[in-house]
Design a protein around this nucleic acid. Structure first.
Lengths: 211, 211
DNA sequence: ACTTTTTATGAATTTATATTCATAATATGA
DNA sequence: TCATATTATGAATATAAATTCATAAAAAGT
């Protein structure tokens, strides 16, 4: 951050930490938090158990950092789209489309995030502040966009909150499903269909090239 | 099943088993499988740990029976609705509405089911055959209904599979959200909004009392 | 080359909890 | 009432996995 220069040692330390995180991500995303032991993470990352504890206070903290990283990646991709000056319907369209890149870039992350955090509220490992915040931010912004679209007579008069919930949960299900067997073409196709479904639901007849 | 008559003892045994299941449900639905120990279940059900093992081979089997019971309850409520002779749009409407009763009758069950199984694919405790089957059955039937509605020109030409996914995931999110703080009026209201959103998305303009 | 500091190691410890089983309590039938 | 069978009990056991820490290896500084 403040240092432009970093010793090789410092850079290595960061690399090591990242390697541990990557290994943990691999394991967690396929087996789930409770079915991965620190010994497993040690094995996968080719460090000793003790070493893990030089980087992370506990297994839970390791998990937490991972979750925060995920939240950040997702936020970085989706947030800018909602901030553009496009008309409301185009923002929603772009938001849906962006899930393509999201999935492509970060399958592991997404699998982990959606499966561990997505809709699982009773998960013992408390969702982090950051993850909660990211979710809430995106949610609120989407809601605002829909409301604004309604005011401008672009969208039909739907309930913005429910619509937001529906859109996000649909995208989540889709992503979770797609991450099981990643096929680029199918994903584009599926997202296009989601786009079609939601924009038809939202757009007023006059703005729509009708059925 | 075959016996109309059962000794008092046998009836008691069943009651005891049910009590254990209920206690486990309470705990699992609020804390999740991994954060509930058999000692906890014993405490809650007022039986000794050893007694639990007279009824269930393992903690996992206890979980499994619970999940199957849940799947059955859900199936019993939702399936008949999809089998009626109503027109397609009314079937979908009734299906959505039925989630009210579903939620009302079985909050604990639902919380447990949706949270442990709903969208959580990486859960270690393998989803049972029965739960998988129930899900698949409902899913396929919904898809058929939508397809049929499209053929009869009741519905707009959407993708049936994606629409089914969207509807079910929306209902799931809603139910999970609602189960956190149950307020009857809000639930009816929310479901009505979901109904509005989806039927507008589905219905052809000519069948719709337009905005 | 040697000392000091930093980082890595993994066997040993602690902790948590699933499961067992010898024993006690209770019910059943003679 | 007593003998037998059934069911319940919970301390003891087994097991798995998180965490620690004395020791070793590596790197940095002199």
């Amino acid at each position: 951050m403040t240092q432009t220069t970093m010793t090789r040692k410092e850079r290595e330390k960061i690399r090591h930490k990242e390697e541990i995180l990557r290994a943990a991500l691999n394991l967690f995303s396929s087996k789930g938090f409770h079915n991965v032991s620190m010994q497993d993470v040690a094995g996968e990352s080719e460090f000793a158990v003790g070493t893990l504890y030089n980087f992370f206070q506990s297994k839970e903290q390791l998990f937490t950092e991972l979750l925060n990283d995920c939240a950040e990646k997702i936020y970085e991709i989706l947030w800018p789209i909602l901030q553009t000056q496009l008309p409301e319907n185009e923002k929603i369209r772009a938001f849906i489309k962006a899930h393509n890149k999201l999935l492509e870039d970060n399958i592991e992350f997404i699998k982990f995030y959606v499966s561990e955090y997505g809709t699982l509220t009773t998960v013992p490992v408390t969702a982090t502040e950051k993850a909660e915040q990211t979710k809430a931010d995106l949610y609120m912004k989407l809601e605002d966009i829909i409301k604004s679209g309604i005011r401008k007579n672009i969208f039909r008069c739907v309930d913005a909150k429910i619509t937001t919930m529906s859109l996000t949960s649909t995208l989540q299900s889709f992503i979770l499903e797609s991450s099981k067997n990643f096929v680029k073409a199918e994903i584009e196709d599926g997202l296009a269909k989601i786009e079609h479904l939601f924009l038809d639901a939202l757009l007023l007849s006059e703005n729509r090239n009708n059925d």
